[in-house]
Amino acid sequence: MKTEEVANLTERHLKAGDGLISILEDIQGKHGYLPEEALREVAEQTGRSLVDIYGVATFYRAFSLTPRGRHLIAVCSGTACHVRGGPRVIKEIEQQLGISAGETTPDREFTLETVACLGACALGPVVVIDGHYLTKVETTKVKGIIEQARKGLDKVEVKGDERVFPIEVSCPRCNHSLIRSDVLLDGIPAIRVTVAFDHKHGWLSISSLYGSYTVSSKHHIPEDTIVDFFCPHCHAELLGGTMCPECGAPMVPMIVRGGGIVQICSRRGCKGHMLDISGTNL
């Protein structure tokens, strides 16, 4: 990472009145980890001492000081997943990859992490791999999952998926339905969210037909703009941490009624999307 890049980024955040954590999040988002030089640069720019920044960076699980692998495997070790056999799954993955939880394989392919509860306890043990939620994972499936990930879970889907069917989605935070029966697109009730871009703020309707790209919005959104999505009920930002395999913009996750997660690219005009219905695509 270039020092100027960090310097610019830090300056931008400081101007916006953001705190240290947003700066670190940004760097982590861009690089997958927090490089030493970047932290030193942040210390310089913010006028804080390096110990403070290092303390924050090592305190939060979301930050990593070592480079992560290309594929991130997060296994739930929350209470529900634990009793449903989570530890066995972790052990199996550890054995397959030859690393222990929290480590990255020497070839930088996989990083294995444990997390405490992903909020899908009834479907445990839950494994999240590159943003795909796999539920009721058994030790016998582990090998296949790792193989799939190696081939690239994202690629398989985005290109080949030409199915068209309606889906009902809800907010991943508050679980309120995002479908508005009084707004029709493609002749059926559409998904309604709030979007923000470029100091503009307003509603956006997306066709709930999977495979259709019909949208309409309050403000005209120019091609290629990356838009922030928000839930109209709880106002939480719809942000999952996965990047679009097509264009690299952040993906927007929504829960599919009946189990599963659909993610769409936040860049106007990009057709990147992913659908996981309880891991059925494996």
């Binding site: 932290l39 403070d52 290092y54 303390g55 090592t58 305190f59």
Partner: peptide
Amino acid sequence: AKAIGFRGRGEKRSIGTPFDVKSDA
């Protein structure tokens, strides 16, 4: 000086310099 500080949390909490190298401070 602020050369040393707390790092990590919980079980892993420890005291030392950032990155475990000699601090300029």
